[in-house]
Design a binder for these strands. Structure first.
Length: 679
DNA sequence: GTTCGTTGCCTTTTT
DNA sequence: GGCAACGAAC
């Protein structure tokens, strides 16, 4: 017998909120308007330091208070760090459990969706994720084998090719157009590049691997292709919120539009003045023309800056005013001024600049400012060299958001290659990485081994094998490698627990243990001079892995999480409260703030970047200026702008440098010029 | 086929 | 000044 039964939605009294938050009291008028806006589409333009994150987190709380269920909310952010922070803050705000809320970066949400439906796209659910290094490893042999002219010295390097491919995917332009409009000087190779591109795509499929761009592009493809799946997610995500909307690209924008569907309950938050990712395909048009896609959208502006001294804000506003393309808004300071006028310093050379920064930092610290409240920002990582050296010799503690991420270090990738291969038997890159660690095995032998593996019954099946050694031990390896090879095979066996007709994966942390004991410790000792440090890193990786029971989730996390966002050492760092002065690229400093900020290398050709000046592309120069704006608006109390007048190491031969043209964009009286040692 | 040493090249920003 | 690509010897 059937019986109709309905679960009724609990009705909440509109006057009383479940969390007990007094929204009107805790938010300013503009914030409140945005947070309490009606369902439907809304565009929130939130200036630097205006409490953007606050608005977004309160919006989520507000929705929950309105009776919206957590599992019906999707919160898209730009970095893992931002998503973590927001979810933590929402958890503090509302009483209920919000673990059902989907929050994360576009890439991680894409990964989550693709893991469920990869087979629809010709992939297996255990697909590997390729980082830049893996991509290069995959692409290199393709370029080598490509016909004709690739031997030519001027033929683009794999790195450049990958950037081009990435742009193609992220802008959804054709390869021909990208070459034509952005890389005119490469057009003569169009035919070869196209062939390489096609082979690269095919190879990714063959090896059951996706690169970062695929996580977006294939998600979009899936949603476009399969109406049922699209509907499933449209029904699930009744409310979609997007942070840093000014930095979304075509693909991300389309994904959002599709997911939002007919309900159109979408809130996007951003600041066009802080759009700094166009080189990654980000398109400011998305935010500038939001109302064209959502004609009924309400626009909210949040224009009170709580962060900076008025002197700093005034300077920032003046600096960005030189840009033509922007949404009109006027940021006003809520803070009182008078502490300090921003300083401008011309130093003799990079060493003198480092000297100045270090000495000033010491004075500030002696004056009672904590090191954690100070940051040194620069355009490119290599510009931090002299400062690192100076800080080190003066024993000033610092933490650096370096170019290399924790998970991208060779030894971490070595260890994970064993796991990746076991999980995804078609992962050629990982297999070869393992093989190349054996003595006497080079590219050629690795390739041979790989092909024999593929031909074997086990290797050609998508099932998880119960034993690797049963197949791999039969393969021919160079005599030198024999004993190591056997050891490796038995180690791989340990990563799988034999179950019914298919193997079952061991826990990630146990896998790492087996790998260290079985093969990697020996290898590490022979291959690296700083063996001890690396061993510690691997130990950290192992500790980190204990949080995970699902290997695939663990691997995805390794690929998607960057160092800055939250590497495994973060727990340790938290104990020490992120010790030291921060050295960071401006891109990575986005969304953060410090009491004291130094911006260094403000010389033409360094910042703005020389390549951009050469290109004479005004759009790119404007983006560069926005980057400068982002840097300026990180400062709360004190701001120091400096540049070296000479750069002896400049490889362009230009030893003397001009001050950055951005310094001409504001009236001179907005800064104090500090004269150092009579210069 | 692999490894090691030399030359010559080029330096942005990241999920 | 670092790394990739190339060429020469094991």
């Amino acid at each position: 017998m059937e019986r109709e039964y309905q679960i009724k939605k609990r009705v909440t009294d509109p006057g009383e909120s479940r969390s007990g938050i007094d929204y009107k009291a805790e938010l300013n008028e503009q914030q409140y308007a945005a947070v309490s806006s009606d369902p439907g589409a809304s565009l929130v333009i939130a200036g630097a330091g205006s409490g953007k994150t606050r608005a977004l987190t309160y919006r989520v709380a507000y929705l929950l208070d309105q009776g919206v269920e957590a599992r019906n909310i999707l919160l898209l952010t730009f970095t893992n760090k931002a998503s973590k922070e927001m979810i933590e803050r929402v958890t503090e705000l509302v009483p209920g459990d919000i673990s059902d809320l989907w929050g994360g970066t576009f890439h991680s949400i894409g990964n989550r969706i693709l893991r469920r439906h990869a087979d629809e796209l010709g992939f297996n659910r255990s697909f590997s994720i390729l980082d830049r290094d893996d991509q290069k490893a995959l692409l290199k042999p393709i370029v080598k084998n490509a016909a004709a002219d690739v031997k030519n010295k001027r033929f683009p390097k794999p790195d450049l090719l990958l950037s081009i491919f990435s742009l193609v995917l992220n802008t959804q332009e054709s390869l021909e157009d990208v070459l034509h409009y952005r890389y005119e000087y490469l057009q003569e190779w169009e035919h070869e590049i196209k062939k390489i591109y096609e082979t690269y795509i095919r190879k990714k499929k063959e090896t059951n691997s996706m690169d970062f761009d695929d996580l977006l592009v294939l998600t979009l493809e899936l949603l476009k292709k399969d109406e049922d799946i699209l509907e499933l997610y449209q029904r699930k995500f009744k409310y979609v919120l997007v942070d840093e909307y000014q930095d979304t690209n075509m693909v991300q924008c389309e994904i959002v539009d599709l997911l939002v569907g007919k309900s159109k309950n979408l809130m996007v938050v951003g600041d066009d003045a802080q759009s700094i990712y166009s080189w990654r395909g980000a398109d400011m048009e998305n935010i500038l023309h939001f109302h064209m896609r959502y004609p009924s959208a309400e626009t909210y502006k949040i224009e009170t800056n709580y962060r900076s001294q008025p002197e700093i804000l005034e300077l920032s506003n003046a600096a960005i005013a030189a840009n033509t393309e922007q949404i009109e808004k006027k940021l006003t300071a809520s803070r009182k001024g008078g502490e300090m006028v921003p300083a401008l310093l011309a130093l003799a050379d990079p060493r003198a600049q480092a000297d100045f920064v270090a000495q000033r930092v010491q004075e500030l610290v002696d004056g009672g400012i904590e090191e954690e409240e100070i940051a040194v920002l620069y355009r490119a990582h290599y510009q931090s060299m002299e400062i690192q050296m100076e800080f080190t010799s003066r024993l000033i503690p610092f933490q650096i958001t370096s170019g290399l991420r924790f998970f991208e270090q060779a030894h971490v990738k070595d260890v994970s290659s064993y796991i990746r291969f076991v999980v995804n038997g078609r992962d050629e890159i990982s297999f070869k990485r393992m093989a190349l660690m054996l003595p006497g095995v080079g590219d050629a032998s690795a390739d041979k081994l790989w092909r024999s593996w593929l031909k074997s019954d086990v290797g050609s099946s998508d099932k998880v094998p119960q034993s690797f050694s049963a197949t791999l031990l039969d393969l021919k390896v160079p005599a030198k490698a024999k004993s190591h090879w056997e050891q490796m095979c038995y180690t791989l066996d340990e990563l799988v627990i034999s179950g019914g007709d298919e193997g079952v994966f061991a826990a990630p942390a146990d896998m790492i243990y087996s790998i260290i004991e079985g093969v990697y410790e020996d290898y590490m000792q022979s291959a690296f001079d700083n063996y001890e440090n690396r061993k510690q890193d691997i130990g950290q990786l192992q500790t980190y892995a204990t949080q995970y029971t699902d290997v695939m989730e663990f691997l995805a996390q390794l690929s998607l999480m960057s160092n800055v966002d939250g590497d495994p050492s973060q727990k340790k760092q938290k104990k020490e409260e992120q010790k030291g002065v921060t050295l960071s690229s401006i891109h990575q400093a986005k969304g953060l703030e410090w009491k004291v900020v130094f911006i260094v290398w403000l010389a033409d050709g360094m910042f703005p970047n020389g390549k951009i000046l050469e290109s004479e592309d005004n759009k790119m120069l404007e983006e560069e200026r926005r980057l400068f704006y982002v840097a300026l608006t990180r400062a709360k109390d004190q701001l120091y702008l400096s540049y070296p007048m000479m750069n002896p190491r400049s490889y362009s031969g230009e030893v003397f440098q001009n001050p950055s043209r951005f310094l001409d964009d504001f009236p001179a009286e907005l800064v104090d010029e500090w004269k150092v040692n009579g210069w």
